[in-house]
Design a protein around this nucleic acid. Structure first.
Lengths: 212, 212
DNA sequence: GTCTATACTCTGATAGAC
DNA sequence: GTCTATCAGAGTATAGAC
């Protein structure tokens, strides 16, 4: 079902466009990319590209959504090592694709407007992240930090480090994040509840990504 | 000296423009503010406003620089309670002025381009922040974190929380930051070296702001 | 489904009068 | 120093042919 001729083709083409756009931005960077530039890159005219998306804002929102899907597949599930290590691998990968980081950061700000298509997506993404940590930690953070707050802190550090790194690429995002995670886990529980907590994170991110 | 007729007036007017622009953005928010909108707000034509600034980018960069000056005066020096409390007060104030936070976040991303006028300013600002913490802590972080890394983490959390708050204003920036600072200081030294460390932060930020 | 062509809006920037 | 007027350009979105 749900594969009736032109509809299915439209969806497939749409996915193909997103894959290509993602690849181009990752390899060539985001230099204030316009719809026309993306169109050229994927081999369509500007009008042809917008046939598949309502607007530029929606197009870029979908590109970021697609990236989240990739991150989950590539860094969390493939070898079974999710959680802390998965998160660190995502960050390490980000350091290879400044264009995607810039697009993400830009959207993060523009999505402040509740009318922006990425607004709800970011809300949902953030909520999934927090719930993942909260659920995984449950009652296992003895003298520690509220799981919800912990999640916000980790998310904030990741996003903030990206901003610093965009301006100064010599910033070591992975190393800095590791220092923080080490510090926080050492005070939560001797058995490293934080690490376990993070195991649920990316799974929930995936859910958020495909749901919304 | 340095007060020769038209030159002095030009400088004074420039400062007045920045003050006004700052006030307007703080009160009415930043809704993709254009040069024309700022011009209207300060009672000049667009051309009249650009007479004082080379470009839109420079104008906005100066506005942010002016804000840093205000933050320092209003929240760090006035009552002698600098450091941790000063930082928390700045964040609490930020929660009252979404327009300024949005402008700052937007510039943070756009300044990734080395040609952007705010690029060097952000580099300098960040450097001053780190040096402040490093100098204040010196050799007083026993089993703790490298001062430079600590500074990056604190800065990242502040910036990242602002991104979250822009999308969801219910986010408690101050409370979340306090949790992190409490956690970090409890593990550094029994006497709270982190708090002392932060005492040097905003002073250095001022230096950076006026230098560059 | 895709393209060409175009319309329209904004915005930043400049020239030149006063 | 400030304004009016204007320009040039980018960029999105739409109309309509094929």
């Amino acid at each position: 079902m749900a594969q009736r001729g032109s509809y299915a083709k439209g969806v497939a083409k749409r996915e193909e466009i997103l894959e290509r756009a993602l690849d181009v931005i990752a390899r060539e960077g985001y230099r204030g990319a316009s719809v026309k530039e993306i169109a050229d890159a994927v081999g369509l005219s500007q009008a042809g590209l917008l046939h598949y998306f309502d607007s530029k804002e929606q197009l870029f929102t979908e590109i970021i959504r697609k990236r989240d899907e990739h991150d989950h597949v590539d860094f969390s599930v493939s070898d079974g090592a999710a959680g802390r290590e998965g998160l660190l691998r995502v960050i390490a990968h980000n350091a290879q694709v400044p264009g995607l980081v810039e697009l993400f950061s830009r959207l993060s700000v523009e999505a402040a407007d509740p009318a922006h298509p990425a607004h709800d997506y970011f809300l949902e993404r953030s909520r999934g992240l927090r719930e993942g940590i909260a659920a995984a930690t449950a009652s296992s953070l003895p003298g520690g930090i509220d799981p919800d707050t912990l999640a916000r802190i980790v998310q904030a550090v990741v996003d903030g480090l990206q901003l610093q790194w965009l301006i100064d690429p010599s910033v070591d995002m992975v190393g800095t994040l590791e220092v923080l995670l080490d510090a926080l886990s050492s005070m939560n529980t001797p058995t490293g509840a934080l690490d376990e907590a993070l195991d649920g994170v990316l799974d929930d991110q995936r859910s958020a990504a495909t749901d919304a």
